[in-house]
Write a protein that binds this DNA or RNA. Sequence first.
DNA 1: CCTGGTCCGTAGATTATGAA
DNA 2: TTCATAATCTACGGACCAGG
Length: 234
Amino acid sequence: MTQHVEKATIFDKPAYPASEAAYILNLPPATVKAWSFGQTRRDDGSVRFKAVIRAADTRNKLLSFANLCELHVMAAIRRVHRVSLPKVRDSVEYLRSQLGVDRPLIDRQFKTNGIDLFVEQASKLLNVSRQGQEALRGEFELALARIERDNQGNPIKLFPYSRTSDHAAEQPKSVVIDPRLSFGRPVLTRSAVPTEVIFDRFQAGDSLEDMALDYNVDEKEIEEAHRFEQRRAG
DNA sequence: CCTGGTCCGTAGATTATGAA
DNA sequence: TTCATAATCTACGGACCAGG
């Protein structure tokens, strides 16, 4: 194998167990596991489901920040029904070879010509209607808008969806995942306070208003952090 | 021959169970 | 507790059949 040595940045470092990723991305834990590490069935050990992304550490079952971003985009695809996973996998594989990159879903090229390639390929493989294509494109764009990049185009921040019910379009970016802050745990965008701290203080009886004053942020943001953290329990 | 409808197999997601 | 594996549920897609 001619595996070139990749410079291990904090963005590629294995840091998140599947359960943690699931809570951040608001996906069922089992789904994250299946997409990241694949799924087997039966005693004969036959592999039924191949992993869709390439996890940072398959041995210890850990995901990197980059993986988190990939799953985030995958989830966007999943929001548009009618797309079957084997075909999605094929399309991703196709992109990987066409663009010549390892992680097509979060590569900078994806935003420019990758989406077109993917949607084109996907509509050939699946029979996605005209309408479906537009929906798919829309979800991609919304998802990508929540990933911030440096000037080389590498993802450095992820603003996860904090609500499930609302339309994806105008969700606030009050909470951010940034590997350089608090070891990549979710924090308030404007003050870098871990959402976990907000939650704990709320449980202890502190008001949203007080915390907003303490951290010098809008009360809405505290509320959003709390909302985000609440999902962990349920 | 073509179209509509139902059935069935399979893949993916979820839940349950057991071990560490 | 938490995590992994196994079992179960569900929904999509293809195949087959019947009626027009």
